[in-house]
Design a protein around this nucleic acid. Structure first.
Lengths: 334, 334
DNA sequence: CTGAAAGCGCTTACAG
DNA sequence: CTGAAAGCGCTTACAG
C-alpha cells in the first residue's frame, strides 16, 4: 500500500489537516512544522493521491482529445501541440480515437464524463448536434481544432480553409497556369471538403477561368483515394498543367501516380498540396504546399481550453495564418 | 452539479447501497427495484463518477503510454494499437511525450503515479535504471514495446532487431549485392542502434564479405540526419550498390539524396528500409523495407498490460515476426 | 431483498 | 499556529 497523508501525519506528529496545508502551500503553520512534515514526506516516500484530490476539488487536471485517427501525421502533430502545452501546465491528456464513428464518439464522451475530465478538445470533424449536446451536458469547456461550428461559445482554432485554397490556386494562376485540376476532399465534409473546393472555384472565377467539372476529382484526404482521383483526372483532363490537392497525402498520391505514368513533376505537371506535413519535405521532389501550423494550432487549442477551465470565461476563436511553402513541385507555366 | 447516486436513491426511494448494487450488477434486489432504479437513473440523467469509484476500488481504468515523440509516424501507429485494445476493454490511455528527456520522463512517471494509473506502457527507449526504479515503486504493472530490458518480469513486445537487420542485408546479398552500405541508428542506442548494426555486420561476415567502415554512416533514425549520412556515404563509398537504412525515414532520406545527385533507384542503387511506415508505400518509388507490425505490437502490449492489471500475474515477452516487404527500391545486382 | 454505516484519501470550514 | 470533523461520491461488509 502506498503511504497516505495519514502516515505522514503520524510520522510528523501533526494532524492530516496540517499536512494538507503544507502540501498545498496554504498559510497556517510554523517553519518548524513545515520542516517536520517535509521530512516525514521524504522519509516515507509519500505522493499525494490525485484521485482523492479530484473527488474533493472537482478537478482532475486531465483533458480529453478526440481525433478521427490518432495515427495520422496530421492528428499526431496537433496532438503533440496539445500535449506539450498541457504537460507544461500540469494537465494530462487522454487520447480518443473515434474512427469518425458516431457511436464510438458518443461512447467516448461518456467515458470522459465519467472520468470527470476538466475539458475536451475536439479535432478535425464536424461537431454533430449529438456531440454538441453530449458535451453541453458535461458542463465542461471544450474547444475545436481544425474544425469549426456555429454554436455560440465554442471556440475553434483553425486556418481559413476557403482563403487558403483560394491562395493556393491563385498562386498557380499567377505563375501562368490556367488548366488547373483539383483533387478535393470529401464533398460531405462541410469544413475541409466543400470549403476548399469553393476556394478553388472562386480563384478560377476571379481570374476569368471557367470551372470545368472534368478538372475536378474527389478523394477522402488520404493516399489511396488520392491515387484514384489522380488516375481519373489523368483520363478526364489529360491536358491539365497543375493540380491542387486538398491534402498533402493526396498531393503525394498525385506525385506517385504521375511518376507511374512517366509524367515529370514539375516539368510536365505542377502539384501543390495542403497541410505541410513533415512528409512534404521528405518526398521527391519536395512538395510545394499550403502550410497549416498544426503544432501551433494544437498548442493554442490546449491553451484556450486550459484558460477556460481555470477562469470559467469564454475564449474567442482564432484563425491561424496559413502560408505557401515553395518547394519543388510547382513551376511557372510558360 | 451533476446528479449523484444520492439523487437517484431519493428519486427511486431506495438506499444508495441498492443503487450501487444495480449499477454494478451485483446480486440482491428484486426486478421491481431494479426497474425503479433504472427509471430514476434515466430520468435524472445520472452518470457514475469514476473518480469516486477509483478512490474506493483502487482502479482507475486508465493506463499511461510513454513515447519519445508521439508525433512520429512510428509512435502514432503503436499508439493506435494500444488505444484500440484499451478502449475496447474499458481502459483510457493518457499519452506522455518524453522528448527522450530523463527529467521529463521521471516527472511524467510521478504524475502517472499521482493519478493512480493502473499500468504503463513504455515505448521505444532504453528503460534506464531510474525509470525502472520509479516504475517499481509505483507497484503497478508495466510493459515495454519496441524496446527491451534485462529486468525480470518486465515483458516486452518487439521484433528481433538483430535478425531483422541480418535478414535485410542477407536479402541484398542473395540477389547479388556485395557493396552494401549501412545507415545505422544512434550508436548509443543499445536496442535499435547497435543491434541492427551488428545484424548488418553479421550478414556480411556470414557471406564472406569484409566489413568496411567506409560503407557505414550513422544517423538518428530521422530524416535530417539520414540525409547527412547518405551524403557522407556518397563521398566515402561511391561504388556502393545497395544501402540498408535502419529506419524508413532514413531510407527515404537516402532516396531523396540519391535523387538530388541524379542517382536512379533502383537502377543505380538499391535501398531497403526498416519499419514499414505508411510512408513507405507513398514515396516514389515505393520503398522496399523490413516490416515491423507496429499496430499489432501496440495492441499486444496493451493486451498484456491489461491482463497483468486484471490477473496480477506476470506475462511473457513476445518477439513479433518481421518480414521483408518487396516494393520497388531494390533490384538484383548483376 | 434492503439499508445504515464505515471508509477510500484527501480538503476545508470551524473552533480554539 | 493547529486539530477535530464533515464531506466529496462512491462500495462493501454487516445486520436484519
Amino acid at each position: 500500500m502506498n503511504p497516505t497523508i495519514k502516515d505522514v501525519a503520524n510520522k510528523a506528529n501533526v494532524s492530516i489537516a496540517t499536512v494538507s496545508r503544507v502540501l498545498n502551500n496554504l498559510p497556517g503553520y510554523s517553519e518548524k512544522t513545515k520542516d517536520k512534515v517535509f521530512k516525514a514526506i521524504e522519509e516515507i516516500g509519500y505522493q499525494p493521491n490525485a484521485i482523492a484530490r479530484g473527488l474533493i476539488n472537482k478537478r482532475t487536471h486531465t483533458i480529453g482529445v478526440m481525433f478521427p485517427t490518432v495515427s495520422s501525421l496530421f492528428s499526431s502533430e496537433i496532438l503533440r501541440g496539445v500535449e506539450d502545452y498541457a504537460q507544461d501546465n500540469g494537465y494530462s491528456v487522454v487520447v480518443c480515437n473515434t474512427d469518425s464513428d458516431g457511436k464510438r464518439t458518443l461512447k467516448y464522451l461518456q467515458v470522459l464524463r465519467e472520468k470527470q475530465v476538466d475539458g475536451v478538445i475536439f479535432s478535425s470533424e464536424v461537431l454533430k448536434k449529438e456531440y454538441y449536446q453530449a458535451l453541453k451536458k458535461m458542463q465542461i469547456p471544450f474547444v475545436l481544432v481544425s474544425t469549426e461550428s456555429n454554436y455560440k461559445n465554442v471556440p475553434y482554432v483553425k486556418v481559413d480553409d476557403f482563403k487558403a485554397a483560394f491562395d493556393a490556386v491563385q498562386y498557380l494562376i499567377r505563375i501562368g497556369h490556367r488548366k488547373i485540376a483539383l483533387i478535393g476532399g470529401t464533398k460531405h465534409d462541410k469544413i475541409a471538403g466543400v470549403t476548399r473546393i469553393e476556394g478553388y472555384k472562386k480563384a478560377l472565377e476571379t481570374h476569368g477561368i471557367p470551372v470545368d467539372p472534368a478538372y475536378i476529382a474527389y478523394g477522402d484526404f488520404l493516399f489511396e483515394r488520392g491515387c484514384e482521383a489522380m488516375e481519373s483526372l489523368l483520363r478526364k483532363a489529360p491536358d491539365m498543367t497543375a493540380v491542387f490537392a486538398a491534402s498533402d497525402e493526396m498531393a503525394i498520391a498525385a506525385l506517385s501516380v504521375a511518376a507511374k505514368h512517366g509524367i515529370k513533376v514539375p516539368e510536365d505537371l505542377s502539384i501543390i498540396g495542403y497541410d505541410d506535413l513533415k512528409l512534404a519535405q521528405m518526398v521527391v521532389p519536395p512538395l510545394t504546399t499550403v502550410r497549416q501550423p498544426l503544432y501551433d494550432m494544437g498548442n493554442l487549442a490546449s491553451q484556450k481550453l486550459i484558460r477556460m477551465i481555470k477562469t470559467g470565461e469564454a475564449e474567442s476563436s482564432r484563425i491561424m495564418a496559413h502560408s505557401i511553402v515553395e518547394r519543388q513541385t510547382v513551376k511557372p507555366y510558360a
